[in-house]
């Protein structure tokens, strides 16, 4: 069945025909005041349900329980609803309307959870703790002789090959264990910029380890 949400847009020309349910949402949200109000209420209920599940799904990792979880879901649903109403004109029918809408609440939960990180006892960004690296990458302490040179070379590459900003972000993410979104918020930037900085850093580090004969461009070479 080729419905609108099967399409990815790469070869489609002309307007995408919406599936009936999505068309119904758009009609109601742009319709007369009673229709619109009813649709907004229905949408809010859906967003709250999805927001609650998403908060629950993530709760174990960010250590929040009870009423605070539900507050977070309510805030995420309310913020997502405002954004959706504001951006409904951007909806292109590339997916079902509800899938597009759910993305807003998932991303709101994601952002709110990451801000939560800084409410834990303050983690200094610059703890440059190389002792944590083996554990972070599951390197067996009993086999230290096998990876000692590799870790030493990695550390040297971080200190010598990375720019100041790359080094700072590497230390925060890898050695201190700050989640990327929390780091982005702290540095006043966004996830994409942090990722790109780390992407370039990862490539440089791999090249340095390859030049030292410790790793190749494909699989790791055993010593």
């Amino acid at each position: 069945m080729a419905t609108a949400h099967d399409r990815t847009g790469e070869s489609t020309t002309g307007p995408v025909s919406l599936d009936p349910e999505s068309a119904g949402w758009l009609r109601a949200l742009r319709g007369s005041e009673p229709d619109r109000r009813a649709a907004v209420e229905r949408l809010h209920a859906l967003l709250l349900r999805i927001g609650r599940s998403e908060v629950r799904r993530r709760s174990a990792r960010f250590g929040v329980t009870g009423p605070e979880l539900d507050d977070l879901a309510h805030q995420a649903a309310a913020d997502a609803l405002l954004a959706i109403i504001d951006k409904v004109g951007d909806f292109r029918g590339e997916s079902r309307f509800t899938t597009w809408a759910y993305k807003f609440v998932i991303l709101e939960v994601s952002a709110k959870v990451s801000r939560h990180f800084w409410r834990n006892p303050r983690v200094p960004l610059e703890i440059d703790d190389w002792e944590r690296l083996p554990d972070r990458f599951g390197l067996d302490p009993a086999a230290e002789s096998e990876w000692r040179d590799l870790v030493a070379a990695l550390r040297r590459a971080v200190e010598e090959k990375l720019t100041e900003r790359q080094r700072r972000i590497f230390v925060a993410l890898v050695l201190t264990g700050v989640p990327p979104d929390a780091l982005a918020a702290e540095l006043g930037t966004n996830r994409n910029a942090i990722y790109k900085t780390m992407f370039d850093a990862r490539r440089k580090l791999r090249a340095a380890l390859a030049a030292a004969g410790l790793m190749d461009d494909g699989m790791v070479r055993r010593s």
């Binding site: 990458f137 390197l139 992407f199 790791v220």
Partner: peptide, 12 residues
Amino acid sequence: NGWAELDRFLRT
């Protein structure tokens, strides 16, 4: 292979 995770991390 104790390096697998580090290898994956550095692979772009």
